[in-house]
Nucleic acid binder design. Structure first.
Length: 281
DNA sequence: ACAGATGCCTGGACGC
DNA sequence: TGCGTCCAGGCATCTG
């Protein structure tokens, strides 16, 4: 499931192949994928525009569109659970889960493939901002790599939270970009039990967790995203973080540090993996 | 205001 | 083998 590093990898991939290229048309194969406006208008609004850049905020991806040097709005994308933005030759056979096709340049296309159909796309008019239309984006907390995501900020937020730390760090209004995989991974790296009450964490633990979150996301971006999910980069290739998971999806397998079997519990409705020895209560 | 539950959705794993 | 059930989880929305 794409989290910040996977979305960033997709952004870089799309930027490297599609910038300065015109969208000549497209096709919506599943209408509910288009969140705004309706499916027909979506293709009409994109057609004839050039992709000027690809940007990311949290797990939201958006392209700036130009027409004759002037803004023509934005194309927004959220991959949700299983969305993929693939850069393909138009001759490639249409896979069963293809939801949207955007013809780019003369022979290629961006193909949005999404098995579980949670993924969404938007067209944002030039007189609005992406966060006006992609409403979830306006609520996002700081990017983990920003100055705004300071130890002081993190400490203040956690001190007021009555939730367990696992649920707290999954909250996109606290910090943008962590999903279930990296949440479990950075709690392991910090030796913090996921069910610890957020407000009970000691300053040293908060500092460690803050650093672990930044580190785990940075490492994952450097490695091009995970492979213990069905995430694919724009070329349809798995990233390579996967073999390195400390705890995620390793229930009952030996901890890579101490050999204790990894536990799995449910917190905030999410499967949560941890080492009961390395992450004591 | 906040926190927890639910719905959305497909396909793979599992038990009988 | 086949059928039913559960699970995977990001986010919007609903409920208490």
């Amino acid at each position: 499931m794409p989290e910040l590093p996977e979305v960033e990898t997709v952004r870089r991939g799309l930027a490297s192949v599609s910038v300065n290229q015109p969208i000549s048309g497209g096709e919506v194969l599943l209408t509910r994928t288009i969140a705004h406006p309706d499916a027909d208008e979506f293709i009409d609004r994109l057609t004839g525009n050039t992709i000027a850049s690809w940007q990311r905020r949290g797990k939201y991806l958006y392209a700036e569109l130009h027409r004759q040097e002037k803004s023509a709005g934005w194309l927004g994308v959220h991959l949700r659970m299983t969305g993929q933005m693939l850069w393909l030759d138009r001759q490639e056979p249409i896979h069963k889960h293809t939801r949207v096709r955007l013809l780019v340049g003369t022979t290629s296309e961006i193909r949005f493939v999404d098995q579980r159909t949670f993924g969404q796309m938007w067209w944002i008019p030039p007189d609005r901002t992406p966060s006006d239309i992609m409403t979830g984006m306006a609520k996002l907390g700081p990017e983990p790599f920003d100055r705004d995501f300071s130890i002081e900020y993190f400490t203040t937020k956690l001190s007021k939270s009555h939730r367990n730390i696992k649920t707290a760090i999954l909250d996109q209004t606290l910090v943008a970009g962590l999903g279930n995989i990296y949440a479990d991974e950075c709690l392991f790296m910090s030796r913090i039990h996921p069910n610890t009450l957020a407000s009970s964490l000691k300053p040293k633990q908060i500092k460690t967790l803050h650093q672990a979150a930044i580190e785990v996301l940075t490492t994952a971006i450097d490695r091009g995203g995970t492979s213990f999910s069905n995430y694919l980069n724009v070329e349809g290739v798995n990233g390579n973080y996967g073999g390195e998971a400390w705890v995620y999806n390793r229930a009952l397998q030996p901890c890579r540090v101490c050999d204790t079997p990894i536990s799995k519990i449910r917190l905030g409705g999410r499967g949560t993996h941890f080492c009961p020895h390395c992450q004591p209560e």
